[in-house]
Amino acid sequence: MKNTGDKGVVISIRGLVQKVGKRTVLNGVDLDLYRGECLGVFGLRGTGKTTLLHAALGVDRIKSGNIEIWGQNIAKSQAYKKKLGLVTQQPSLFADLNVAENLDLFRVIKKAPFERLEDVIQRLQLEDYLHEALPSLQVGVYQRVALACALLNRPEILIIDEIIRDIDLESRSIILQVLEAYLEEGNSCLCGFSNMEHVHYLDRVAWLDDGSIHIYSPDEAENLWRELNAVIPKKRGEQDA
């Protein structure tokens, strides 16, 4: 999924400060998402991945800072939302509707044409699940539906949060294929993750720690993670021995 892109900035975040309740979660974050790249936001639970993604998306009001999408301040115009796709970490599909109804309602919400339905159903191989109720779906299929909903409006920016954390392998490969094809069309993707397993699908990693960000290449990130992890078992092992 390596993609260098033509360096056009899609999302530009400057000095983002965000508080949840009274806790300052993001403390002056600068981040750029380039056209055609897949940027991963890495952080452990509670470090503010989701907070960052939701702020970048414009659904959360921010305390201070400046976010621009395609050079437009997101506080000023919501035109960018036409070209946006979102998969959230928490399940957020309409639990009372079945798969087909969910897709159709998302089509309405995203003002996408009817024909798109067939395309996303086919790509994510959802034909067999169309009439199933959401609560009965496996996590993997649920995530495929969520991604299908996100792709309905042919987004140019896709924001996905923990989409393949712990799902079945078949769904995993379908989702990765779809994402690869999506990026090849020159679109960009911002994704939150907390597991290094698929880090090599990413172009860059934004490591989120203590409210600020460091940019690494996937290899650097993986090495760093290994180093950090190495500390723990060693100590234990020493103690055990």
Partner: peptide
């Protein structure tokens, strides 16, 4: 139901 976010993120 956590679905409100999609309305907020929609055009």
């Amino acid at each position: 139901g956590n679905t409100w976010i999609h309305y907020l993120a929609s055009p």
